[in-house]
């Protein structure tokens, strides 16, 4: 069974159509990268999946359950909160909570749902474990402003993982980082891909996308222009826009 199926998602902002009918699906354990120039709608698509935007049309199905059927949801609805939990989100700007330490950021949301003291101890142990995996063993009790951008983003990844989402989404996770710090974040994401975490990555790092992805989508003007394996899309693009985009990148 497909873990995620998107069918005909459309989204307009003030009469400008940003998504013009997006459909794709993915298997559990796959890594899908979405490439495309600014304004192609890739971030909006990711935000629709996380219910940060409400699509005007289409359906979102996770593990065979239809989560979203256009215009039947209310953002304030308790159901929306539950549905969001299928997806984890890592933002371009990290969006860590400044008043909490790295560890507190990671365990905050799970702890709000804990029912017993024992459960809280377990959550904290798991939080520490996640941060260790991110290579932040000695940074757990630091506040976000004491961390580098790369470290902050790794905390944000741990925070998203702590809720054990079915699908982890990345919105240009390295765009706010200087090149020196990009590598450490990409390394962590690659590690997750090796462990078969289901991921959707919106990125400008083409080399990285090629290396890490099972499948690549190239978006242009609100539609999927090309879709396939990295070899197909990046090495042998058939679509004119894809060729143009990649040529500009390689220059």
């Amino acid at each position: 069974m497909k873990i995620l199926e998107i069918h005909n998602i459309k989204k307009k902002f003030d009469d400008v159509e940003i998504l013009k009918g997006i459909s794709f699906s993915m298997e559990k354990g796959q890594t899908l990268s979405i490439l495309g120039s600014s304004g192609s709608g890739k971030t909006t698509l990711l935000r629709c999946l996380n219910f940060l935007e409400i699509p005007d049309e289409g359906t979102i199905t996770v593990n065979g359950d239809v989560l979203f059927f256009a215009n039947t949801v209310d953002l304030r609805d308790e159901n929306v909160r539950k549905n969001r939990r299928h997806f984890g989100m890592v933002f371009q700007q990290f969006n860590l909570f400044p008043q909490y330490t790295a560890l507190e950021n990671v365990v905050l949301a799970p702890k709000l749902e804990a029912k017993s003291k024992g459960e809280i101890v377990e959550i904290e142990e798991k939080g520490r474990e996640l941060l260790r995996k991110m290579g932040l063993e000695d940074r757990m009790n630091n506040y976000p402003h004491q961390l580098s951008g790369g470290q902050q983003q790794r905390v944000a990844i741990a925070r998203a993982l702590a809720l054990q989402p079915d699908i982890l989404c990345f919105d240009e996770p390295t765009s706010a980082l200087d090149p020196e710090l990009t590598g450490e974040v990409l390394k962590v994401i690659k590690e997750l891909a090796n462990q078969h975490t289901t991921m959707i990555i919106v990125t400008h790092e083409i080399g990285f996308a090629k290396e890490v992805s099972d499948e690549i989508i190239f978006m242009d003007g609100g539609v999927i222009a090309e879709q396939g394996t990295p070899e197909q899309v990046i090495d042998n693009p058939s679509n004119e826009r894809t060729k143009q985009f990649l040529a500009n990148y390689l220059k």
Partner: peptide, 13 residues
Amino acid sequence: GQYEAAAVLGLNK
């Protein structure tokens, strides 16, 4: 971004 991060973590208002 603070509100959005809270929202995707499933926090209510």
